[in-house]
Amino acid sequence: MTEGSRGQTLELYFVGGKPDGMLTAEVFNWTGHLLVTPRTQITEAMRRREAQYTGVYLLFGEQDGADLAYIGEGEDMSDRIKSHEAKKDWWTKVILVTSQANTLNKAHIKYLESRLVEEAKSIGRIALENGNTPARPSLKEAERSNMEGFLDYLLMVLPAIGVDAFKQNKRPKLTREDMREAPSPVFELITRRHGLHAHAIIEDGEFVVMEGSTARDNWSGRGTEHTSYAKLHKDMMDNGVLVREGHFCRFTQNFAFASPSAAGAVVNGRPTNGTIEWKVEGSGKTYKDWEAERLAHADGGHV
């Protein structure tokens, strides 16, 4: 956790008592409200009061085997969703984003729609059915600030409910001196057979592989071509995070992974036990051994 950050409380309510069904999401001290529903429950969802509120909505699904999304807005979102239900076959889930007291106006939601499209396109995790990015409406300075604050909370909540389309994995460029001063040691993964050498640190609980690290230029794990790590490797190449250079790829930016194994799999182009293959730079100490030492020295104090 970075200095100055603080914990937040996310409240999820499973409307029908099932985690894969309709749910609502709210954060303490935030005015926003999310209604998430699978398409199979769209009739029940449209009967809810918040479905008639002013807000933005996000459709998710897939087309031709690729993930697809659409971002829109409406003063009565149920009307828009009913139209999409009749005209769009590909989506399987919708998220309605409103304020708890229905205080968003047309300019607010047009601003949020534009910013969400901008964010999704800049991150490039998912294809958008939206054509051009909508123009931002003219808002007073205070209103823009309020909407950016609203957006900050929304972008925090979406990954927590399983929506990664707006999750930014890119991290600021770090110098070697920055890496030395980081609380985490520098880890390295060397695969001599393929001439690979990658460096990483732990930052804010994520395993960040450094710009300039090298990786395989193809996924070689037989029988694992359809796993999440194989898809991640492909997405990173498609999005320019990994760029071919000779017989391998190079990281064009610092990139955060959820675990050492995810990072190791992308570097090696195959399933990898990252806790063993990543080692503290300049030593034979594995990530697993380093982690065990830290746990052994933990004093058991309460947070």
Rank of each mutant, 00 (worst) to 15 (best):
K288S: 10
R250K: 15
C249G: 06
A256S: 04
G269V: 01
A256G: 02
V267P: 01
K288Q: 08
I276H: 08
N254E: 11
S259L: 09
K285Q: 15
S261Y: 00
R250H: 15
V266I: 15
V280M: 01
A258C: 15
F257T: 03
L242T: 00
T275Q: 12
A263K: 03
M237D: 09
D289N: 09
G282R: 03
K288G: 07
P260N: 05
N254C: 07
R244P: 05
C249H: 02
M236C: 08
N273L: 10
E277Q: 15
A262V: 03
E277S: 06
K279R: 12
K288R: 14
T272C: 04
K288D: 02
P260V: 03
W278S: 00
G269Y: 07
A265F: 04
E277F: 08
E281W: 07
M237W: 03
K279C: 09
M237E: 13
Y287D: 01
R250G: 10
G282I: 06
V241P: 00
T275R: 10
P271E: 12
S261K: 05
V266N: 00
G282N: 05
Y287T: 02
E281R: 06
F255E: 07
P271C: 14
K288I: 04
R270F: 07
G284M: 11
F255V: 08
T286E: 04
E277P: 00
R250V: 09
N273T: 12
D235P: 01
R244I: 12
V241N: 03
V280C: 04
T275K: 11
Y287Q: 01
K285S: 15
V241C: 08
A256K: 05
Y287S: 00
A263N: 06
D235Y: 14
S261I: 01
C249Y: 03
A265I: 05
P260K: 04
D238S: 15
N268G: 01
C249A: 09
N254I: 13
T252P: 00
V267C: 03
G284C: 11
V241L: 11
C249D: 08
V280Q: 01
S259F: 12
N239G: 06
C249M: 10
G240Q: 13
